[in-house]
Structure formats: structure tokens, C-alpha cells
Write a protein that binds this DNA or RNA. Sequence first.
DNA 1: CTGAAAGCGCTTACAG
DNA 2: CTGAAAGCGCTTACAG
Lengths: 349, 349
Amino acid sequence: MRKTIYDIARAARVGIGTVSRVFNDHPRVAEETKRRVLKVARRLNYSPHPHARRLAKQKSFTVVAVVPSFSSYFFVEILQALHDGLRHYDYDLLLSGLDYPQQTHLSLARVLDEQRADGALVLSLPIMRDLRNVLEAAKIPLVLVDTYDPAFNSVSSDNVHGAFLATQHLTKLGHKRIGMIAANTSSPPARDRLKGFKKALAEHKINLRPEWVKISRSHKLDGFTYEAGYQLMQAFMEMNSRRRPTAYFVSSDVQVVGALRAIEEAGLRCPEDIAIFGYDDIVPAEHYGISTIRQQIGEMGKSAVALLMERVTNGESKVVHRRYEPQLVIRRTCGTTQGSRSASNGSFE
Amino acid sequence: MRKTIYDIARAARVGIGTVSRVFNDHPRVAEETKRRVLKVARRLNYSPHPHARRLAKQKSFTVVAVVPSFSSYFFVEILQALHDGLRHYDYDLLLSGLDYPQQTHLSLARVLDEQRADGALVLSLPIMRDLRNVLEAAKIPLVLVDTYDPAFNSVSSDNVHGAFLATQHLTKLGHKRIGMIAANTSSPPARDRLKGFKKALAEHKINLRPEWVKISRSHKLDGFTYEAGYQLMQAFMEMNSRRRPTAYFVSSDVQVVGALRAIEEAGLRCPEDIAIFGYDDIVPAEHYGISTIRQQIGEMGKSAVALLMERVTNGESKVVHRRYEPQLVIRRTCGTTQGSRSASNGSFE
DNA sequence: CTGAAAGCGCTTACAG
DNA sequence: CTGAAAGCGCTTACAG
């Protein structure tokens, strides 16, 4: 039979209040009493009933993570980081998956309504009006991860800057003809990466050719998929080789893998014929030798949890934005300095 | 302020017991009363407090999933399936990740001890003695997913048969020289796939050459990784081309991706020079054109949840084993019938 | 069919 | 420092 606080109290010859205080690290319990209670508790293999505790404390000791999708490397990694972080706080992680992004606010509203969570982590979702209303109505701490909205705490990565770095690197290698494969711009990261790309071209006085920027319209993971990368690169491959880019910034590594496939099928090689720069540094990126931008996912996860827990436990309420700097990871696919070829090619431009 | 059952009772002019009965679908409540209560509840936006309910009912309405690792496609997909399935039952899914497989039994013991779950789903773990003890001691329903042990309910896929089908397909294409890249045999699926491979060779009277079976010793995901596939295939590539297999059964698609890379680096092509058969049908497999074995992951997840919930809610207790038949998915990498080449090659053996 | 009351296992002011 | 008691929001025999 499960042991209760009464069993411990009896065996330790104290009142139940004292047992409770011991387990709640109440400051005013005599050392001696505390020791005795803990000893008995251990002997009887006691642990407080979580739901009773939650009811009495009027707290759920649970955090919800609202995730748009399970099936991408990024989410798996960030989820893992969040899960690990939460362990230190003895909080449970409740997953709230979404079938349709449109229902985010509904599913979240329900969770918050039922007071099933003391805090929320909202991943990668564009903050639309419906969602913002729910979030503002919910009087619980929350932090946005991988998105940004001035009104809420957030931990995000500077996608504009990351894309800028990647593109700039391509220019430094001597490329003048640079294209981009972008994800659906309904996704904030996709939008920012496109922005960073444009910014880098502008800053290096390289002409932006509209036909050299191909944007996925897919709604499946907002085009952050193999298929999207493959198809868009195929479109490039169909262009006359003298009239297409020599280098490409691709908005995610998953897309790069698809793109590489298209390049190979076109009988070309990367990086010999075509330079590629990706984004995300997903696990397999190393193996493919993809030059990419690393987001500090583990750090972001830890930081998001810490931020949230400060608010949940200390009642801290100032809105904070933490922005992580992405890092360049140079590997094979971007190639090395364009020698004479770039010079001559460049002169055509 | 949060509404309680008392608010509803007062507004609906009934006792709190009646309100409770309405929300618990108690059979003997007058239709008229029920309607009135529900109407008021809706108006006041009431929903029962989950923890109070759990405390009073002495049930956690939660299921734990013990997962060895987040970072693989397989787990993500199975998790997604479990999560979806659980929704229909209004049960929460509690994740219990593991840092070290060795502590599985400890982390599980803790959860069960604290009565934080009414049932458990244990994924892909080899059932060792420690774990078996914990599971047997826990008097809660549980089902094994993707593993098998005679003592517990299980939903698994017939890995022996899947590997058999894959290997047999290679023989049917005319291959006589067939090798295998296997994962660490400490993993039950890895072991079974190796077994199925051997069985198919035996049945088709093809000689098993020990040096043509390369087994990963990695502990990282038991060798179900890009790296393992890459390295083992590299080892094959270093063999004299006349003395190595013309076809390979690889124990997972992730490994295939690594293997393809090694093949490419060796200046060979798949399927023209080398035929490959994978396993798992992970999302990107389609894109690579990997011929593979599909496990019915979605089905398995649904079925596991259903099995568990029958036990949790109906108290059903017979031990049941559900085995899913894997399916052949023929794509590019295994090539087509070996023409004259296979004939002549075959004659060397 | 329905209400009043005890109980689920804790927490926490209030006295002392 | 510590005990007795009320309260957290439900559920469920027990009467009626």
C-alpha cells in the first residue's frame, strides 16, 4: 500500500504538518526532527503524492510545450534540450502537438484554462492575432522559443545575422552570382533568413536577381523539407548554366540535402561546380560536409527553461529577449576561394 | 477566478455531487438536470480541476513513455503516433528520457513508485534483468513497443521477417554475393535483422561469408547512425572489388545514407555498381530512393495505445503480443534484375 | 434521481 | 520549532 504523510508522522512521532515542512524545506524545522523524519521516510520508501501536492499548492508543477511538429530535426533537438533542462526543476513537460497551426491558440487556451500548466514554451510559431490574444489573456509565464514578439519573453537565434554571415562568406570566396533557396516566408525564421541574404548582397554591392531567389510555397513544415530543396534546385538546374548562380544560400540543411540530390542528377558536383551554404547544422550536416550556420540549440533550450522557471518560481516579470548569435561552420559544400574561374565569371556580371 | 464545482452547483441549483455526476457520465442523472448543469457549466466556462480529480479518483490519467533517445527518426515518429493515440483518451503523455540505458529501470521505478502514471509504454529497450524486476513489481499495465518479452504485452514488428524479405529480394534480383552492414547486436532489432539476413541466405543456399558481415560496435544509438553506415561501407570499399559483395542489406536507412556516401567517395554508383537494401523507411528514404522495409509505425503506435488503455480502463489483463508484418518498399537503390553481369559473377561463386 | 458528508493526500496560516 | 485544523476541488458510497 502506498505510504502517506500520516504513516510517516506516526512512525516519526511528529505531526503531519512537520513531515510536510520537512519535505518542503521549510526553514524552521529542528535539525534533529528533520533527520528523524527523513530517515523514517526513506525506510518506508515514502514520496509525496504529486497530485495531492499540486492540489494543495494550487500549482501544477508542469510546463507545456506547444510544438508545431514533431517531425523535424530541429524540434527534436530543442525538445530534448527543454526536457533535459526541466529535470533540474522537477517539473513535468506536457507536450501539446498541433495538427493544424491554426488551432494553436485553441489547444493552448484549453491547457491554460484548465490550469494544467504553470508556464508555457511556445516553439517556432508565428504569433498571429488569435494566438497573441490567448497568450495575453493567460496570466501565466511564458517564453517564446525560436520566434520573436516584442510583447513576450523570447529566446531566439538571430536568423538575419546568420543568413548574412553565410551569404557574406560566399561573397568572400569570390562569388558574384549568388542565389537563394528559401522556405515559405510565412515562417518567421524563413523570412529572416531571406532578409539576411538580401542584406549581405546589398552590403557587398551584389545585384539581387529576382529569378535567383526561389521561395517554397509548401505548407508542409513551411518548405523546410528535402522535397522543397530538391525541387527548387531542380528549377535552377534547368536554367542555362551561364545564366544561373555559382553559389547558393539555402535556408536549411534539410533542403540542402535535397538540393545536393538535384545537383548530382544534373551531372554536376558540389563544391566543384556549385557552392552551397546551408543553415541549422542538423546532425547529418557534418556527415555531408555541409557548410552551415549553427544555432546553439542546446544553449537556447537551457536558457528558455531558465527564463521560464525564474518567472514561474520567483515571479520575475520583466520581459526579456535573449538572442543567440549563430556561428559559421565551414565544411565542404561551400568550396574554397574561387580562383581564375570566379574572376572570369565575375567579369560577366 | 477559477470556477469550481460549487459555483456550478449554486448556479444550477443542485448539489455538488450532481455536478460531479454529470461530468462523470453517471448513468442515473435526469436528462433535464444534466442539461441544466451543462448549460451553466458552459456559461461559466467551467472545467474540472485535473489534479483534484486525480486525487479523488486515485488515478493519474497519465501514461509514461520511456524512450531511450529522442534523436532518431524512429522515435520521433513512434512518439508522434503515441501522442496522437492518447489524445482520444484524454490521457497525458509523460516523457521519461534516459541519459544512460543502464538507468532505465531506476527512472521507471521512480515514476511508478510515485504513482505518476497509470500505465507505461516502454520503447525499444532490451529487457534486462533489472528492468524486468521493476516491471514485474510495478502493478500497472504496460506495453512494450518495438521490443519483445514473453512476460509483457508487446507491439512489435517482425524484424527477422523484414530482414528476410529484404535479403530475399536481393537474391531474386540475381545477386549471389550479398553482404550486410549490421547495427550493434545488443539491440534486439539489430539482432533480429541479422538473423533474418542469415535465414534468407541459408534458404536460398547462398554461402555466408563472415567477412561480408560487418557489425557496428558503436554504443551511440547502437550503431544505427550515419557514421556507422559510412565507416562500415568504407571498410567494404577497401576490399578488392572482385572479392566483395555486389549487394548489401543494411540494417537501417540512416546507415544507408552514410553507406551511399562511402560508395560515392569510392567512385562507385548505386544501384549501377552496388545494390543496397535498407530498413525502416524513414522520411528521407523516399527522397534517396532507398529500397527498404517499412514498419507500420503509425499502426504500431495506435495499437500500443489501444492495448494499454484496454488494460488501464477495463482492467483487461491477458498478455497479448501483436506483431506487425513489415512491408517491402522497392525503390531505386536495390537496382533491377542482374543481367549478364549477375550471371557471370554468380558463376565465380 | 439527488443531497450531505466523508475522504483522497497534501499545505499552511494560526496558536502556542 | 511544532501540532491541530481548515482547506485545495473533486468523487462516491450512503440515505432518502
